[in-house]
Nucleic acid binder design. Structure first.
Lengths: 256, 256
DNA sequence: CGGGCCGTTGACACAAATCAATGTCCGTGG
DNA sequence: CCACGGACATTGATTTGTGTCAACGGCCCG
């Protein structure tokens, strides 16, 4: 399902390149250019904003470890998480072409980030059009996830919304079901799940109990799925929007 | 507020170039390349899908006239509009790098489209990196709108959601308030507004009555705003995410 | 041992969905 | 010219899902 993991363990950006390789076809030279990108490591504790609303940034952030949320809010201050990013993601790769942030970024758990300056990112995107193309494609996958996030909040009830979120994260975190069961670590607290699903924490608590009755437990930072098919059904989950069918013949290269 | 309208009236893509020019800085030659893009005109009646879910497309669509909706749906068949596109937009410019549609596109009113083949789009994006950059930036603005759409549905009540939608469309359609009033044509029916806001038509009807009590009438395909400031307040509307502050010094060119 | 964060539970309020009719407009055809 | 049908809008009665308010419990950590 995944592209072959990149062998170059020298760069922390290996997982990012793997992601790009699952959908794009950069040459060896281009891959090297990506791996050689400079960056400074940053450690963040939970609930720490590292991109603020309206801020103009001069670097993009790569998630080395942890979970990151894209946050927006209404005038009343109620927060809404519009995307969750995991290790290997670049939550604001888009800032390369659109440096003014219209959403904040916050660490959902203790996280490690790599700050990659826009300069080198832009340089390799200009020098190697196929890299710019891969970057663009990566941001478009995030965009498709935003559209599905809208459907989730707009057209599903609480139980279904949460189940859908759990399904999405299971797939993205690479938790493969075996014998219709799986488990994975998910260090989100209930109020964060609420912010992600357009709900409030108390109701998440109740809905999780309803989901537990169908065989999926969420507790002490773990998700334990006893019946994956049932969870998929409850969450009305169809993973095609994640663009993870990374069969080599589906990858695209249009530049050069 | 807008960039100077493009003078080249020979190409139907003039309005698209204008949009790009409001945020990007292509050279004269690059502008010409955009205007010279080929395309075939297509007329669509209301409710007609022109991109279906899962379809692999070989062209992008430009909206010459009319309104276009990006549609998704849950397993129950309830539809959710995740974006509304107006004349001058390219609703699926992203298909240039991601040709498999994860959302459908449907004419919300009688519309005229221009189908622009991917070939020439990719050719000029490869030949002129600044064009690729402008395309990428344009799709990122759509992406920012998706994030705000999530906030709208996830964290506002029905009246506020609809007011926000009306505000957004007023601004995007270029309806400038004068003396705190404005009016513009909006040929959406109530069930389409419902699909856009994650509501059902009956409740849209009631909410519109509540909005009318605050000075904004929506009837017979017209929106009549008697108190723009009040509508902005109800809709909790902050236009910054639309990236319309097109002051020349805010436009960006990173390639070359 | 105590305090804070998080999770859990209950009673209740309220916004939105649901169900069901009726009304209005408009194009079409008898 | 009027009757008819269809699409859309409107209104009312009622149900239901989610929010609100409040209290308590578990757990970790200083």
């Amino acid at each position: 399902m995944h592209a072959m993991p990149c062998q170059d363990t020298l760069s922390p950006l290996g997982p990012f390149l793997d992601r790009l390789l699952s959908r794009s076809v950069p040459s060896r030279i281009e891959q090297d250019a990506i791996l050689k990108l400079p960056g400074s490591t940053m450690h963040l504790e939970t609930h720490r904003d590292f991109v603020r609303l309206g801020e103009r940034v001069d670097h993009a952030c790569f998630v080395v470890a942890g979970l990151v949320g894209r946050f927006d809010q209404n005038a009343n201050g109620d927060r809404q998480i519009t995307a969750i990013h995991i290790a290997g993601d670049m939550p604001d790769l888009h800032s390369v072409v659109q440096p003014t942030a219209t959403s904040a970024l916050q660490a959902l758990t203790t996280s490690t980030l790599l700050r990659v300056p826009h300069g080198p990112l832009r340089k390799i995107a200009a020098q190697y059009p196929a890299i710019g193309e891969a970057f663009w494609r990566d941001t478009m996958v995030d965009s498709m996830m935003l559209a599905q996030w809208i459907v989730n909040i707009g057209r599903r009830d609480a139980k279904s919304r949460i189940a859908h979120l759990l399904c999405e994260l299971a797939v993205r975190l690479g938790a493969e079901p075996s014998d219709n069961r799986l488990r994975f670590r998910l260090p989100l607290i209930q109020s964060q799940i609420a912010d992600a699903c357009g709900l409030i924490p108390v109701h998440v608590n109740r809905s999780l109990k309803a989901i537990a009755a169908d065989g999926t437990l969420v507790r002490s930072r773990m998700v334990i799925v006893e019946d994956w098919d049932r969870l998929v059904e409850i969450g009305d989950f169809d993973p095609s929007y994640l663009q993870r069918d990374a069969a080599p013949e589906k990858r695209i290269r249009i530049m050069n």
